[in-house]
Design a protein around this nucleic acid. Sequence first.
DNA 1: GCAAGGTC
Length: 845
Amino acid sequence: MELIITEKDNAARRIAEILSEGSATAERRNGVNVYRWGDTRVVGLSGHVVGVDFPPEYNDWRDVEPAELIDAEVTKEPTQENIVTTLKTLSRRADEAVVATDYDREGELIGKEAYELIREETDIPVSRVRFSSITEREVRNAFADAEEIDFDLAAAGEARQIIDLVWGAALTRFLSLSARQLGDDFISVGRVQSPTLKLIVDREREIEAFDPEDYWEIFADLQKNGSGFEAQYFYDDDGSEAERVWNEADADAAYADLTSVDAATVTSVRRRTRTDSPPTPFNTTAFISAASSLGYSAQRAMSIAEELYTAGYMTYPRTDNTVYPDDLEEDVLLDEFVGSPTFGEDAESLLEQDDIVATEGDEETTDHPPIHPTGEIPSKADISEDEWEIYELVVRRFFATVAEAATWERLRVVSEAGGRSLKANGKRLVEPGYHAVYPYSSASENHVPDVEEGEELSISEVRLDAKQTQPPRRYGQSRLIETMEDLGLGTKATRHNTLEKLYDRGYIEGDPPRPTALANAVVEAAEEFADRVVSDDMTAQLERDMTRIANGEATLEEVADESREMLQEVFDELAASREEIGEHLQESLKADKTLGPCPECGESMLVRRSRQGSYFVGCDGFPECRNTLPLPSTGEPLVLDETCEEHDMHHVKMLAGRDTFVHGCPRCEAEKADESDDEVIGPCPECGVAPAEQRDEGGDAAEGGDAEEGGELAIKHLRSGSRLVGCTRYPDCDYSLPLPRNGDIEVTEEFCEEHDLPELVVDPDSDDPWELGCPICNFEEYQARNAVEDLEDLNGIGAATADKLAAAGIESLEDLRAADPDGIAAEVQGVSAGQVQDWQSELEA
DNA sequence: GCAAGGTC
């Protein structure tokens, strides 16, 4: 039997399809797909199925000096037991194995890991095939001419694994121990995350150190036959043109000269045409950047891309490649879009071009093509709105890369008025070219009319604008990812995750991200004692060392030992400053949690955590001062920069994924609750008396006075800031319904027939009032909606799949847990029994 | 429990 191993299931399926000419069938083993035909089996890994780690005796952070990790043994253990077992079982029956992982360094290492797992079972020959894209021709050629695993290249990848683990773990433990942060809130450091964090911290330092400078600019409105355009004053500054005037007296003088006349004379007119080349194919970074200008975070863009890839609508989203492979036939792919309601016309117009030549970027790699649509086109109804917007972006980017260049006409008009110079730059799109199919890049025009030299133009207005130089702008997420790529930090598959990690670790907040006090302290400590780990030099050096290993000029051991020596030197310096570093980190952690002064004792109020794990605001003077304030029960509190003027307290935001909200000032929220009265709206369905009964009983007061029942529902404000409809007999009756956190709530005269409750309207006087309706009906709808969203949180279920599942009666996690996998597979197209089993096991976990 | 890199 011949065993073929790929890097992922998707590649396994496609390779089996090609090599078997479509006759391969799939079977599940230990939850892993195995494709078979004749005497061949193909199995897909899931990237690395083994991972590096220290032996178990190093597990307890408190028992092991961090520096001991430097020379600790590094072992490899399976991390994906199911896949490892399946691979080993298959290899025992195989006569030969072929490694067909991705054609890049990490793919070589993943292949070598598979090789070693096979070697634990058998000594069958193991070969390696390499192909640049999974197409019939490439794959067949590769299998006809199998090669050997490149163990040097794999060793280069292993050096990276070891160095990253040793540096990351030793320094992370050192900082966490020194600041006594051993729980979920440990303090992490790493070769990629720390230089990335330093980028953000450095930029914030520049902003803080920035000293704005005053300057002035002067604009004049010129008129030609009733059509006006704007011109700007400029002067000669040592041979170059300058617009900014740096002192007020000069600006006033120029302004006075320009206002002393009422016409300007044209002194020069220059016309130029400029071609504007279409953009290059999408790699991951360019894709994230384009999606970001549509308002998607890096993480969200990648997660949608993943779903569209899995559904078969676009190619693999993690790629550095910006050159379409030779086997991509652009005209054939364009042809797929002819007839599409959204894309048909554009595709046809592109096909009418004399020849279709795609643009190329600078980077050409061998593992995956640039991101492009596959030609299988979803209908709008198949996928969510966000998915469609991203899909359209990918399609239109492909269109743009095969479209013609645009042509602009630039018109520059210089004129003189009162001895001063004015200039106006016009631009007009003459040939829209790729802009016709790609509306995402700016094509805005600036109209400047045709004028001739010597012509007189009347001046209708002159403006003197006082301005100030601005500090550099913060990096947005996509700009950060671009900068990481320029510096060689991280990879196409990890950069967006690194940013998420910085958010999760409490190092950055907001978008554009800003560093917390903790982040500043970590970067400062690293700069002083372990400069390498916050510098992109470490990655640059590692890349050079990896190249040497891959070329056989150095060994893994030499490179790793040299790195260990450097880390040892870092620790020699660190040891003496352990307490100092710890104190600084602890102060910063406290600063990130400080809200403002305690009104009772003047100490600071801090965000704290109770023994039960819930968050509250407590006084730093505890136990002498026991003043506290509640916080909402959902989410992780984040202290914002914004403060409440009345209480000098920072506002608090509660981070809870899609339910994230701003709580505001906890004192204001508590006071608001104290001041508001409960508003009764009807009988409690648990313990109340229905209106019908009340009517039957007439005015009989004796029955209605029973304390065991007769509860009523009221709109209540809690001190934690939340509102609810709850029973007046609370805590004897704890019936409650949620209400929105914000907005005025109006109780209307309309009643819900089913529940005997009035319908509610939120923000009745606003432009966009929300008819919430009966609170019980609203709660039931809310639960149903949440159940569907919970489903979408499972791996591989996007809006498209959730929609199909709902049609088959699977509308909640409970439904899915109880479902019969084979039944679902039979009923829902595109969902396999194996997938359902995966979701069910994910639920159990 | 630490990193960064695959993968979903």
